[in-house]
Computed example of a mutant assay.
Amino acid sequence: MRLGFLSSHGGSTARAVTAACRKGELHAVPALLISNNSTSPVMQWAAETGLARAHLSSAAFPNPDELDAAILRTLRHHDIDTVVLSGYMKALGPRTLGAYRGRLLNVHPSLLPLYGGRGMYGDLVHAAVLAAGERVSGATVHQVDAGIDEGEVVAQSRVEVHPGDTVATLRARVQATEGPLMIEALRALALAAGKPT
């Protein structure tokens, strides 16, 4: 698999997947990072690790159709066959969704369908979990479709919510499961496609 990552901020899942590939724990090639945020830590990380990178945002492409076309063109230029969203804070357009249907994965910091959808991202998810008094949270890898956090669930991790947890402590434990969960999901996707895992 040739992997492309889309990320807006830190890209912790992209980093974990790339590390697994370079250690030989996942037979895939990290080949591209696309970010809508030129000053994001993930762009700096990509530069430091030699990963090809592209800044594609609505600032350069105010028309959503043109941005969608630019993202798809860039993915194809780098021969990407599987796309991983790692904290990408924008909706993808129909061209990219159609071209990568079944090979476009996102990780979300809750047990979907709980605490997903519009406005549910990052620390807002963990705050909602704590406010509801949940005893268990976790992460979900799912297929990406036109709905927000609505695609088919591929894998989930479960994390106990401890008495006295804060957003920061819960985030740390959930985030620690996201990389391994995505790696597991990518292995399953490769196996289903008849590729080495």
Rank of each mutant, 00 (worst) to 15 (best):
D149K: 10
V174G: 10
V84I: 14
F5D: 02
A52V: 04
R158E: 15
L191H: 12
R158M: 12
S12I: 01
D149M: 13
V167L: 11
P180A: 07
G93C: 05
G102T: 07
Y88M: 04
G119M: 02
G98A: 01
G122I: 13
P196T: 09
Q44L: 14
P109R: 02
D145K: 12
P196Q: 08
H108S: 04
L130N: 06
R103C: 00
G50H: 07
R15G: 00
L191Y: 07
L26N: 01
L124E: 07
G147V: 12
H162Y: 09
P113R: 03
L75Q: 01
E152D: 11
A16S: 04
Q143S: 07
A60P: 02
L3A: 00
S157H: 12
A91T: 10
V84R: 02
I71K: 13
D79V: 09
S157I: 05
R118I: 13
S38F: 04
I80Y: 03
V129S: 03
A139W: 01
R22G: 09
W45G: 15
A172K: 14
W45R: 13
C21R: 01
D165W: 03
G102I: 05
V107Y: 00
A31Q: 11
Q175I: 06
L181D: 09
H77V: 12
A54P: 05
L6Q: 07
P163F: 09
A188N: 14
G11V: 00
W45T: 15
A14R: 00
L72F: 05
A59P: 01
L114Y: 11
A20P: 01
G50C: 06
E178P: 15
Y88I: 05
R22D: 13
Q175S: 13
G10T: 03
A193R: 15
V29F: 04
I148D: 06
W45H: 15
L85Y: 02
H142T: 04
A52D: 14
H108Q: 05
G102D: 10
V154S: 05
N63S: 15
V83E: 01
G24K: 08
G151P: 06
Y100N: 00
I148H: 06
A131R: 11
P109I: 09
K195A: 14
T18E: 02
S40F: 10
G164K: 04
G147F: 12
H108L: 04
